[in-house]
Structure formats: structure tokens, C-alpha cells
Design a binder for these strands. Structure first.
Lengths: 210, 210
DNA sequence: TTTTTTTTGCGATTTTTTTCACAAAAAATA
DNA sequence: TATTTTTTGTGAAAAAAATCGCAAAAAAAA
């Protein structure tokens, strides 16, 4: 498949927009509606769809329910995706409190930590000792994990995760993780996001002066 | 400048790697060290630097202190960057508890909410009524804001921010924000990050079977 | 001193991504 | 029914980004 990170992120955005449109009672959309909704061009919407073999109707646009179904399938929403978190700090607790994942078919199954004072075996999303990670991952056939530990521990945790069978990691620690070829690591770094923003704000500021 | 989002994110990564190397006592680096550290190619590192007019020494690599200084300047780290948060929920509280921003020159100055039960005027990072936003932004000449409110409120909050003089927004709400030409909006959407990961894990899974 | 080795800097090339542009299909209108 | 309008789908073109390749500089070795 000719997919890259950005095109998949766009699919997620289309999906979100379609959900909103559907809940407003719309039944069909045109590529330019979606373009407006997600902030890209209509031809990019159509190109994305064409790349994934999604087609609509000439002059009739796209049937929202049909389109959603296909996007959801591509994005793995045909089954519930179980996810674990390693590191029961602030990020983990924000994620665990967030109620939006479940309705997108993403189930935070457990969190893990080394600090016994954090263990909460009876929580809805239990916080368990790191030693139990492997068992939980194997028993539940979990493939996706979130790393939210301090940077010095990140690679070590990642190795443990790969060993347990995890294939995809969303890494909040500000370190690059070395991973096996059959595994994916994506990064979230809010400092970098803010630095990025600051850079572009500065650039716009300077160009305006001209 | 020939900069795009990815190249600036790489600069942030180089900066992080350089800080680590420096704290380990290193004084110079070669492009391939940095490439290893951030996971790209050595020629990309050199190209990035050349695009920003950063030069090293043939056969001698780059002087870390000098390089850091230049990267920090480009990334706006010559002055403290004040940032506000709108929406005092889980994300905001995770961000406010995070101690890493300050040492990167990013100061969370205040958070704002509409819910009076959340106000904490005497916190280190105070949580204030939304009505005070404009004053705080103007008095402190703040240009950067984080939106962490429910999606339905995001555009309205953004408009308020633009009106107050905010030029850059990091938006955690799962909605596209329409913004004036001289403002930038970046997005953080963890559901989309996870969907992305799931997609690529599935793809790798399928290609392995072949 | 000369030769070899190493590493940068950057133009040229390749690859990737986006946009353009228009035929084809289908609906709407006349 | 014929014409006009609208919108898709997709090759072709353009733009953007990454990689290649190598001269030039500098250090190290001979």
C-alpha cells in the first residue's frame, strides 16, 4: 500500500469529520466538504480515497455510512484494540481518565509501573507491577503499548515490550527507541510541538514586518 | 526559509540529543552521531544544518556548544516562552504537573476554565476564569496557547484567543480550527496517533505473512 | 613533506507528495 | 430527449523532501 504517516492521519481526520456529519443527519458528502472539514484540498481527499480503493459516485459524492465503514476497516476499527500503558505518572492518569478512547474501539487494558505505591489492582484500568506485563500482554494478545516513563528507562521498557510481543509503541519519553524491523514506534513530544509552534509563530511575525 | 514542520521537529531532536551528549561530557559530534541519535541519515543532518546556515569543520565535525546555541536560537530559546492553557481538565493537569517545560524555557503561565469549581488563583500555575484570559495574555504579551477543551468549544475558545493576541495554538481538541493567516495551529490527537500505529502494525503483520 | 583518511557542504538526482486538469459519469434542467 | 451542470477518478505535472555523490578542507599518518 502506498500509505505514509500523513495519509493515514488524514484518514483518521476524515473518519472524525464523517462521524460528526453523520450525527448531524447527513447521509452523503462531497470531497470538498471533507476537505473543508479537515483542512486540505478536495483533490487530496479524492486521491487518498483512490489510493485505498475507495470510490464514490460521480455527481453523487460519497455515501457517509459506506465511507465510514471502509475507513474504519482500514484503521483497524473492525475489532477492539487493546492497549497498555507503561509508567503510571501524569500522562498515564490523564489517558486513563479520558473517556473518548472506548467509543473509538481503543481499550486501555492496564497500566504498569515499578513503584508499588502506585499499584491499583482493582481499578477499572488496573495499575499492575511491571513483572506482570508479559503475562497480561500474552493472555490478551496485546500488540500496542504506550510508553510514559522517564527517558532513561524508555529503551529498557521498550525492549521488555518487544520481548512480550508488542508490535507498536507510542512513545511519550523524549528519546529515540531502537526497535526490531517488525515493530513500529511513533513519538509524541509536547516540548517539540511547542518549539515547532514557536518557530512558526516567529517566522510569521518576521515576514509580517516586511 | 526552506523550513517545513518535519525539519523543525528534527532540529528539536538534534537539540535534545546534543544536550544529552553534552551532559555526558562530549564536546564535538559528527553528523552520523546525530543521525544515529535521532534516527535519520547523516546527509539529512548536514542538509538540515546547511539550510539553516549552520556549518561545522571538515574532518572535525561540529562543536556541540556552538551548535546548541544556534539551534536554541532558531527554536526561540533565547527568551522564555510563556504559554497558557485553556481548559483545566486531565490534559491540563498533566501538563501543569510536568516539570520538564521550565528547563526548556517554556513557562506555563496560567490555565483558564469556565467552571468556577476549578479556579485556583493561588496555585503556582493559577487556574483563572476565562474572563481574565485577555488581560493576562495582553499583560504578559503571550503568543502561544494550548487548547484542551471539549471539541464543541474549541473554535469558540480559539476565536477568543486570536482576539486576545495569541498567534500560535497547540490544539488537543479533536476538531480543526479555522485561524487567521498570521496564526498557526498545530494538532495533537492521541486517538489518531494510536490509529496510525494500529494501521502500521497491521501492515507489517500482513507483509510478514507473505 | 607527501599521502591517506575522514568528514563536511552542497549541487544534482531521485523519490515522494501534492496539485492540476480533464474525461467520464450521472443527475438536473430545458 | 438533448443539454447543461456537477462531481468523481486518475494520469500527468509540479512541488517538496530526501538521498546521492563527490570536491574540498583538514587532520592524521607515513
Amino acid at each position: 500500500m502506498v500509505a505514509n504517516r500523513n495519509s493515514i492521519i488524514r484518514l483518521s481526520r476524515y473518519k472524525n469529520a464523517l462521524n460528526r456529519l453523520q450525527s448531524l443527519g447527513f447521509v452523503k458528502v462531497f470531497s470538498d466538504n471533507l476537505a473543508d472539514a479537515v483542512g486540505c484540498t478536495a483533490s487530496q481527499v479524492r486521491k487518498d480515497f483512490s489510493l485505498f480503493g475507495i470510490s464514490g459516485n460521480k455527481k453523487g459524492g460519497y455515501q457517509i455510512d459506506n465511507l465510514l465503514e471502509k475507513l474504519q476497516y482500514i484503521l483497524g476499527k473492525d475489532k477492539i484494540q487493546k492497549v497498555i500503558i507503561v509508567g503510571a505518572g501524569n500522562i498515564a492518569s490523564a489517558l486513563m481518565k479520558y473517556k473518548g478512547f472506548e467509543k473509538e474501539g481503543i481499550r486501555l487494558t492496564a497500566a504498569f509501573d515499578i513503584d508499588p505505591s502506585k499499584f491499583k489492582k482493582n481499578n477499572e484500568i488496573p495499575i499492575l507491577p511491571l513483572e506482570e506485563l508479559k503475562t497480561v500482554v500474552k493472555e490478551n494478545q496485546i500488540r500496542i503499548a504506550i510508553i510514559a516513563v522517564p527517558d532513561v528507562a524508555a529503551q529498557q521498557v521498550a525492549d521488555l515490550l518487544f520481548e512480550a510481543g508488542i508490535k507498536g509503541i507510542l512513545n511519550f519519553a523524549p528519546t529515540r527507541i531502537k526497535s526490531p524491523d517488525d515493530c513500529v514506534v511513533n513519538y509524541v513530544n509536547l516540548e517539540h510541538e511547542l518549539e515547532n509552534l514557536i518557530y512558526f509563530v516567529n517566522v510569521l511575525d518576521k515576514t509580517k514586518v516586511k
